[in-house]
Amino acid sequence: MARQGADGGAAMEEYRAAAQRLLECVEAGDAEGAQGIIDDLTHLRETELFRELGTLTRDLHEAIKAFHYDDRLVDLTASEIPDARERLNYVITMTEQAAHRTLTAIEDCTPLAQELSDESARLAERWHAFRRRELDAAQFRQLNRELEAFLEQVQGHSQRLSQQLNEALMAQDYQDLTGQIIRRVIALVEEVEGNLVQLVRISGQRMSDEGASESGPGKEEVAAERMRRGEGPATPSDSSDDVVSGQDEVDDLLSSLGF
C-alpha cells in the first residue's frame, strides 16, 4: 500500500539520516539523545500515515462525487429499484390469480365429469337389462325418459366443460406476462451489478484517466431503446396517460388513426 516515488524517497532519506544519528548516540552511550531520535522517527511515521489517509479520503470523495453526478445511478436508486419491487409484487399477484382461476375451473369441472360418469354407468346398466329382455313396458318407458334427460344433461355439461377448459387455457397467459416482467427485473439487477463493480473499481484505484462523465447511456436513450425492444406488460404502477388500460382503448386509438 505504501506509495513509492518522490515522497517515499525523501522519507527514506530522513529515515536513513535519523538511523545513522541513532546508531552514533547508542555507540557513544547517549541514552537521552537516542530517545529523542526515536521520538523524531515516530513523528515522521505518523506524518506519513496522515498523508496517506488524506490521499485515500480525497479519492473516496471524488468517487462519491462522480457517482452523484451519474444520472443513471440516481435514477436506478430513486425509481427503478422501487419500480422493480412493485413489478415483482405484481408478478406474485398475477401468478396467484392465475392459479386460482385454474383451480376454480378444475373445481367446477370435476363434479360435472363425475355426474356424467355416474349417470352413464347407471343408464348403461339399465340398457343392458333391456337388451337382456328384463324390463317390462313401464320400465322401458321410464328408461326412455331417463335417456332423453341424460342426453340433455350431456349437452349442457359438455358445453360447461369446454367453457371451463377454455378458462383454464386462458389463465396460463400469466407465464408469458410475468416472464416478461421478471426478465426486465433481471436486466435491472445486471445493470446495478455492473455499477457496483465500477464503484469498487474506481474506489480501489486513483481516479486518473476516467472522469465522471464516462458513465452508461443517458436516461432518454435507455427509455427509447427499451420502447423499441418492447417494455413488457404494464403494471398497476404504470397507470399513466401514455399507457392504454385495455383492448377498448387500443381499438379507440386505432380507429382515431383511421383503422
Partner: peptide, 14 residues
C-alpha cells in the same frame, strides 16, 4: 398480440 400498451407503440405499429 402483445403486452406492449404504450400509445406511442400502438401508433408506431399502426
Amino acid at each position: 398480440v402483445t403486452a406492449e400498451a404504450k400509445r406511442e407503440q400502438i401508433m408506431e405499429a399502426a
